[in-house]
Amino acid sequence: MKRPALVWCLTIAVVIVAAVMVLMTRCGQPISGRPSHEPEFGSWYVEVQRYNQGVHGGMDCSLCHTDIDPEEHPDSENLSESATDLFDYEACASCHPQEYEHYHLGVHAEVLSGTVQSEIDYPAPTCGHCHDPHYRQVLSRLQVIDAQVDICGQCHPSELETYLENYHGKTAVDLDYADSASCADCHGSHQVVALDQPEKAVQVCRKCHPDATENMVGYLIHAEETLSPDADASHARESVLLFLVQLFFVVLTVSVLAFFYGHTFLWLLRGLHEKLRRR
């Protein structure tokens, strides 16, 4: 046997394995540089050049700003408030009637009208909170997914976090797999729904999983493994169950590895000791 070659091969193999393990410990640190899609909320300032490059570019201001008389500059008493909040989005309906109608059937509109109570501190979003009216570009599917992560995640951070831990989020967001499901694929974009009714949820699953059963709805996409029941009251029992399962496997993994790593380390020391003593 050609020992030197083997020594080299094995040394390289060990270095590669060690490097992979070191890299693994660095997991969970997202790579920076992903483009941000945060809309410029609230600003009164419009960059005309960028406006003209966007999807609405070239349209006359007064088409949307119907309440503003072009002859007379409006007074500035509202400038301390958010332009995004103040705009009357009924203007959107003249070109986007279907989206406008669907929005009013969704849970965001219900929160605004007061028929549904929300636990979230922010006011429910309207058109301009998700769609930047002045600079919106035509986005690819992956860019739309990234935009949803940024925009939906601002008001729903724990749903975002659990989505990114789920295989749908991992593949769509981290691995740029466009066939995977994003926020709006399940919850709708204009007619936004909470999916707390199983019979509605199963219809959504069947968009990609045609054979989905009623039971499959019980799968938690936004799974929280926690002992605190108030994290997500509707799934408190499942959360505790998942926490206990997770705990069992973590204890098993850590104890087996700790024992055998120690066993192996002591063996290494003993082996070296004997080999050196024999010389």
């Binding site: 039971n215 799974a223 493994e225 499942e238 169950l241 998942l242 997770q246 496997f249 993994t253």
Partner: peptide, 27 residues
């Protein structure tokens, strides 16, 4: 095969299977 599995298992079994599969694989 989540569609077949949930014909006789509750949906949360998929969550449990994910934890099992991933943790045991790391071990």
């Amino acid at each position: 095969f989540p569609e077949i599995a949930t014909q006789f298992l509750p949906g949360v079994a998929i969550n449990i299977a994910q934890i099992m599969h991933s943790d045991e694989a790391l071990l």
